[in-house]
Design a binder for these strands. Structure first.
Ligand SMILES: [Zn+2]
Ligand SMILES: [Zn+2]
Length: 987
DNA sequence: TTAGCCTTGACT
DNA sequence: AGTCAAGGCTAA
C-alpha cells in the first residue's frame, strides 16, 4: 500500500478511493497542490519513492535528524543581542496567547446559527471539513473531508468510501515549468518513462504512454484501489464533531475577526495587501513594528499586545540578527545580497532570512525600524502576494482585483460583517468569501437557475469579508458548519489547525493576497461578481467593485510584477474576461463568464466559486465518493471543456485551486438550505496557481478567492494522503476519519499555539496599511471593501505576472525587488516576533530555562522561519511565499542575489509537498527543530533533549497513525530537517 | 462517469 | 413566493 498507486495505469490518471487519507488536519488548506510541479523540484523525484518504506525508521531517522539538526542548529547565530531580545520577550508574561483567544470569540459568533442549532436540521450543513492537499510534485492530492459534524447526524448517507484513486498521466512537462505547468499534453510525458517527470511522478506508472494519448492525456485510468483506501466511511457527521467543529472553525474566524474592525479601516489603507495572508507568517504583522512608525497607527491598537510586544522584541531580535548577518552582507541593497554567506551556519540562515526578508532594505531599517520600512514595502509587496508571488502587488489593481473584491463577497447576507473582515484583512476580501462563503450563498449563483440575479449588480464580495470572526456570522449556519468541519477536524484536529485557518481565515483575507491570487485570487477577481450583497464594508458592494477596480488598475501597474506569474496564467484570458470584468460586475455578467475550471458556462455559485454545472457535479462526485485521482502526467493537464474528462486528477486539482471548497460538500448530504461553509480557510485559491493548463486559471473564483489566498499561505498544509506516490496525481482523499484519528496530546498542544505564528488580522491590517501606503494605495480606496477588493483584485489582475517563472517579470520585479526585500525584512521581523511568542507558549519550551530558550531560539530561528515559508509555499510550486502575498520565484530570487537560497528553499518545499507534510507534522517538526540540543550553550541540554524526544515521539505516533501506508514518513520528515539547516546555511 | 435537470430547504 | 446552493436523478 504504500503507495499509492502503483498501479499501472493506463490512463493517465488513476483513481483510488481512499478513504482515508486523511487529511489530517489541514483541512482546508489543503492546498491543492501543487500540482504543477514545478520544474525544479525534480528533486523530488528522487524521493518520490519515498514511499518506500524504509522502514520506519523512526529511530533510525531520528537519530540522524537529530544529529543533523544539531549540527545545524548549532550555528547559533549568536547574537547576544538576539538573545537579549529574545529574552525580553520570553520573560514578559506574554500575552501571547491572547491573540489566539480572540479567535474563539469569533467563533462563537459565527457559529450561531447553525450549528448548533440547527440541529434542527438544519441546515446546517455540515461542513465538512476537508482538507485537501495536493502534492505537487508528488502529486498526489488528497482531500479529505470531514464533515463536520454536525448537526444532523443523520442523514447522511454515507457512503462508503471508498475512494478511489485514479491516476492520470500527465505530460511531463508540466513539470517543467514551474509555474505553470501546463502542459500539453500529450504526449510527452515522459515521465512515463522515467521518472522524471515531473516530479512526482515517478514511479509507477509507466504506462504511460498512453496516456497520453492524445492529447492530454487522458489516459486511462486505472484504478486501483488500494491506495488509500482507508476506510472511508462516510461518516456521518457525527454529531460529535459538531461541537468541536464549531469552535474550531471559529477560530479562524476569530483570527480574522480580530483584525477586523480596525483592520478594516486600516486595511483599506493598506490595502490589502496582503492581505491576507494570513499567512501565517505573516509578517505583516511585523510591519506592525514598523508600523508603529509608520502609520497605521490607529489601528494598531488593536493589536493586541502581541503586536506591540512582539514588535519590540522582534525588532531587537531582528537587529541582532541583522547585525550578525548583516555584517556580512551589507545591505547593499537588496539586490545583492547574496549571501555571502559566510557567516556561520547560522548566519546562513539568517542570511537567507535576511535576504528573504530583504536584507537590503531591511537592513536599513534595520533595527527595529526596519520593519517599518519594510512594512511599507511590504505593503506593497505584500499585497497579496502570497502565492503568487507576486509581489506585492498591491492590491492591485488589476481589474482582477476588482473582481476579487467583488467576489469576496462573502456571503451576502451578512455581508456587512464580513465585508469588514475582508477588508480588514484586506485582502482577504476574498477571503471572506470563502470563509464566509457561506455568505456566498447569497449570491445568486446558479445562473443556471436562472434566476439570476439581478440583484445586484455588483457584488462585492470581498468586502464582505468580514471579519473572520465574524464572518460567518452571518450566516451563522454556515459557519457553524464550517466549524464543524473544523471541528471535525478539530475533533481530530484541534483547532490549531484551524488556527491556520485563521490565517486562512484571514484567508479570506487571503484572498487578498494578491499573489496568490494569482491563482486564486485571480480568480476571484475575475469574478467579481457581484453579489449584491455584500458589500463591504463600506460598502456597498457595487461601488466597491468599481472603485476597486479602478484602484486596482492603478495598482496593477505597480504590481505588475506579481502578476507576472499570473500573467502566464493570464492565459486564461478568458477568464480574464470574466475577471477582468470591470468592476462592478454583475452577477449575470459573471455567470456569463466562463467556468474558471473548464471554460464552460457558469451555472452558478457552487462550492465557493462560480462554476459550470459539470464542474459542480464533478467536484461533488469526487468529494462525496472520495475518489483519489492521480495524474500520471505531472499534474499539468489542461482542463478545458474538451479535455475535462480526460484527467480528473487535474480537474479536481483545478477545482481546488480555483477555490472550490471541500467544506461545501455536505457529508450528510442534506439538501437545500444554505450552506455555511465559510470556511474557508482555504487555501485554495492560493494554490492556485495557475492551474494548469489553464493557466488561466484564474478565474473566477468567487469571492472567496481571497480567502484562499490567505489560507494558503498559512500553510498549506496539507495533508497528505497517504500514499504517496509520487505520482503527481492528485488524489483527493477524504479523510474523515482523521478526525477520529487520535492526535497525540502534545502535538495537539503544539498545534494549539500554532496560531501564534500567524498574524492577527489586526496586525495584518496594520501592516497592510503601511504597506498600503505605497503601492496599493489605490486600493485603499475607500471603503474597506474596496481595499480588500482591491487587493484582491490587484492580484488577480496582475495576475499574471509574478510568478516566477516567467521571465519577464523581472524588470518589474526588479523595481519591486527593493520592495520585495524590504518586505521580506519586514516579514522576518514579524515572524521573529511571532516566533518568540510562539516559543513562549509552546508546551515543551516553557519548561526550559530562559537562557536555554534563548539559545535555542538563536540557533533555530532561521530554520523555523524558512520552514514556515516553505510550508506555506507548498501550494505554490516554483515560488516561495515569503509572506502575505508575496511570493518570490527562483528567477526573481536570482535577480536579487538570493537564487541559491530560494533554490534550496524550493527544493525543500518540493520535498514537503512530496511528503505531503500536513500541518501537524509541520508544527511538530518546528518544535523538533527548535529543540535541537546542539544548540550551543545549553544549560540543560538533557532537558532539551528530553523535550525534543517527546516531540519526536508525538510526531512518530501521529504519522504512523495517520499515514499507516507510509511507515517511512516519520523518518522522511526528519530527514528533511538537515536539509532545512543546510538551506539556512546556504544562504 | 458525465452533466443537465430536478428537488430540497434555509433564507429573503 | 422567490432565491439559490446543495444534493439527487438519470439519460448519455
Ligand atoms: Zn467547468
Ligand atoms: Zn492530469
Amino acid at each position: 500500500m504504500n503507495d499509492t498507486m502503483d498501479t499501472t495505469l493506463t490512463g493517465s490518471s488513476v483513481s483510488v478511493n481512499n478513504p482515508l487519507h486523511h487529511s489530517p488536519p489541514a483541512p482546508h488548506w489543503g492546498a491543492p497542490g501543487g500540482g504543477v510541479g514545478s520544474p525544479r523540484f525534480n528533486n523530488s523525484h528522487h524521493q518520490q519513492h519515498s514511499q518506500t518504506p524504509t522502514g520506519s525508521s523512526a529511530a533510525f531517522v531520528s537519530g540522524k535528524t537529530k544529529s543533523s539538526m544539531t549540527a545545524v542548529t548549532s550555528s547559533a547565530v549568536g547574537g547576544d543581542a538576539l538573545a537579549n531580545t529574545v529574552m525580553e520577550q520570553l520573560r514578559p508574561p506574554d500575552t501571547g496567547g491572547s491573540d489566539s483567544v480572540g479567535h474563539s470569540s469569533v467563533a462563537s459568533s459565527s457559529i450561531p446559527s447553525c450549528n448548533k442549532g440547527d440541529s434542527s436540521g438544519c441546515g446546517s450543513r455540515r461542513p465538512p471539513t476537508s482538507s485537501v492537499v495536493t502534492a505537487s510534485s508528488g502529486a498526489v492530492t488528497v482531500i479529505s473531508v470531514q464533515h463536520g459534524g454536525t448537526c444532523k447526524p443523520a442523514a447522511d448517507k454515507v457512503q462508503p468510501d471508498d475512494g478511489k484513486t485514479i491516476k492520470y498521466y500527465q505530460s511531463c512537462n508540466g513539470s517543467v515549468v514551474s509555474g505553470q505547468g501546463v502542459v500539453q499534453s500529450t504526449g510527452k510525458c515522459d515521465l512515463s518513462g522515467g521518472n522524471t517527470g515531473v516530479g512526482g511522478m515517478t514511479m509507477p506508472i509507466e504506462d504511460e504512454e498512453d496516456d497520453v494519448s492524445g492529447s492530454d492525456g487522458e489516459v486511462s485510468k486505472i484504478d486501483f484501489t488500494g491506495v488509500n483506501l482507508r476506510t472511508k466511511k462516510k461518516r456521518v457527521v457525527g454529531s460529535e464533531d459538531s461541537q468541536d467543529g464549531f469552535d474550531e472553525p471559529e477560530r479562524p474566524m476569530s483570527w480574522e475577526g480580530e483584525l477586523s474592525d480596525a483592520e478594516m479601516s486600516i486595511v483599506t489603507g493598506a490595502c490589502l495587501n496582503s492581505k491576507q495572508d494570513h499567512e501565517e507568517t505573516s509578517m505583516e504583522g511585523v510591519q506592525i513594528c514598523g508600523v508603529n512608525n509608520s502609520s497605521s497607527p490607529s489601528h494598531r491598537e488593536d493589536n493586541k499586545h502581541p503586536l506591540k510586544f512582539g514588535e519590540s522584541v522582534v525588532d531587537k531580535v531582528l537587529e541582532h540578527v541583522r547585525s550578525k548577518q548583516l555584517h556580512h552582507h551589507p545591505q547593499a541593497g537588496p539586490t545583492n545580497n547574496i549571501l555571502p554567506q559566510n557567516s556561520t551556519t547560522a548566519s546562513d540562515l539568517p542570511l537567507l532570512v535576511d535576504k528573504l526578508l530583504g536584507n537590503g532594505g531591511c537592513y536599513n531599517t534595520t533595527p527595529s525600524h526596519s520593519p517599518v520600512l519594510q512594512q511599507r514595502h511590504m505593503g506593497h509587496h505584500l499585497k497579496h502576494s502570497h502565492h503568487s508571488g507576486n509581489q506585492a502587488v498591491p492590491p492591485t489593481p488589476s481589474p482582477d482585483s476588482a473582481i476579487h473584491s467583488a467576489y469576496s463577497y462573502s456571503s451576502p447576507a451578512q455581508s456587512p460583517v464580513t465585508s469588514r473582515h475582508g477588508s480588514s484583512h484586506g485582502l482577504p476580501s476574498s477571503g471572506f468569501s470563502s470563509p464566509y462563503t457561506p455568505s456566498l450563498s447569497r449570491n445568486n449563483s446558479d445562473a443556471s437557475q436562472y434566476g439570476g440575479s439581478q440583484h445586484s449588480s455588483c457584488y462585492s464580495y470581498s468586502s464582505v469579508s468580514v471579519s473572520p470572526t465574524q464572518f460567518s456570522p452571518t450566516h451563522s449556519p454556515i459557519q457553524s458548519r464550517h466549524m464543524h468541519g473544523h471541528g471535525a477536524v478539530g475533533a481530530g484536529f484541534p483547532s490549531p489547525v484551524m488556527p491556520r485557518g485563521p490565517d486562512f481565515g484571514s484567508g479570506p483575507g487571503n484572498a487578498g493576497s494578491p499573489l496568490h491570487m494569482m491563482a486564486g485570487g485571480a480568480i476571484y477577481g475575475s469574478v467579481s461578481v457581484p453579489r449584491p450583497g455584500i458589500v463591504n464594508v463600506g460598502g456597498n458592494g457595487d461601488e466597491c467593485l468599481q472603485q476597486e477596480t479602478a484602484a486596482a488598475d492603478a495598482n496593477d501597474e505597480r504590481e505588475g510584477i506579481l502578476d507576472e506569474k499570473m500573467s502566464s496564467l493570464a492565459a486564461d484570458l478568458v477568464q480574464h474576461s470574466a475577471l477582468a470584468a470591470p468592476p462592478g460586475i454583475s452577477r449575470q455578467q459573471l455567470i456569463n463568464s466562463p467556468c474558471p475550471i473548464c471554460g464552460d458556462k457558469i451555472s452558478g455559485f457552487h462550492y465557493g466559486i462560480f462554476s459550470c454545472e459539470s464542474c459542480k457535479g464533478f467536484f461533488k462526485r469526487t468529494v462525496q465518493n472520495r475518489k483519489n485521482y492521480v495524474c500520471l502526467r505531472g499534474s499539468s493537464c489542461p482542463v478545458t471543456i474538451a479535455t475535462r474528462k480526460k484527467c480528473p486528477a487535474c480537474r479536481f486539482e483545478k477545482c481546488l485551486k480555483m477555490g472550490m471548497k471541500l467544506e461545501a460538500i455536505r457529508e450528510d448530504r442534506t439538501r437545500g438550505g444554505r450552506s455555511t461553509y465559510q470556511c474557508s480557510y482555504t487555501l485554495p485559491a492560493s494554490l492556485v496557481a495557475a492551474p494548469g493548463s489553464d493557466t488561466s486559471s484564474h478565474k473566477l473564483l468567487a469571492p472567496s478567492g481571497d480567502p484562499q489566498v490567505k489560507l494558503e499561505a498559512p500553510d498549506v498544509g496539507v495533508v497528505a494522503g497517504s500514499s504517496g506516490n509520487g505520482n503527481g496525481g492528485t488524489v483527493p482523499v477524504n479523510s474523515r476519519h482523521l478526525d477520529k484519528l487520535a492526535i497525540p496530546q502534545l502535538l495537539q498542544e503544539i498545534m494549539d499555539v500554532e496560531h501564534l505564528w500567524h498574524y492577527n488580522d489586526q496586525e495584518m491590517q496594520k501592516m497592510t496599511a503601511h504597506g498600503g501606503s505605497n503601492s496599493s494605495s489605490s486600493s485603499s480606496s475607500s471603503s474597506s471593501s474596496s481595499s480588500s477588493s482591491s487587493s484582491s483584485s490587484s492580484s488577480s489582475s496582475s495576475s499574471t505576472s509574478s510568478n516566477g517563472s516567467n521571465g519577464n517579470g523581472n524588470s518589474e520585479a526588479s523595481s519591486n525587488n527593493s520592495d520585495f526585500l524590504s518586505n521580506l525584512c519586514n516579514i522576518a521581523d514579524h515572524r521573529l516576533y511571532r516566533l518568540v511568542k510562539w516559543c513562549k507558549s509552546l508546551p515543551l519550551f516553557k519548561n526550559i530555562s530562559i537562557d536555554d530558550q534563548i539559545s535555542l531560539l538563536i540557533n533555530a530561528w532561521c530554520e523555523l522561519l524558512l520552514f514556515s515559508c516553505c510550508f506555506r509555499s507548498m501550494s505554490t510550486p516554483g515560488e516561495i511565499r515569503v509572506s502575505l502575498g508575496k511570493s518570490i520565484s527562483l528567477a526573481q530570487a536570482r535577480d536579487l542575489g538570493l537564487g541559491a537560497c530560494i533554490e534550496r528553499m524550493l527544493n525543500f518545499t518540493e520535498h514537503l509537498r512530496r511528503l505531503r507534510v500536513d500541518k501537524y507534522e509541520y508544527v511538530a517538526m518546528k518544535v523538533i527543530v527548535l529543540l535541537t540540543s546542539d544548540a550551543s550553550d545549553l544549560r540543560e541540554a538533557e532537558k532539551v533533549r528530553a523535550s525534543q524526544e517527546k516531540a519526536l515521539q508525538a510526531l512518530q505516533h501521529y504519522t504512523l497513525a495517520h499515514y499507516p501506508e507510509i511507515p517511512s514518513k516519520f523518518g522522511e520528515l526528519l530527514l528533511r530537517i538537515p536539509e532545512l539547516q543546510r538551506t539556512c546555511q546556504v544562504g
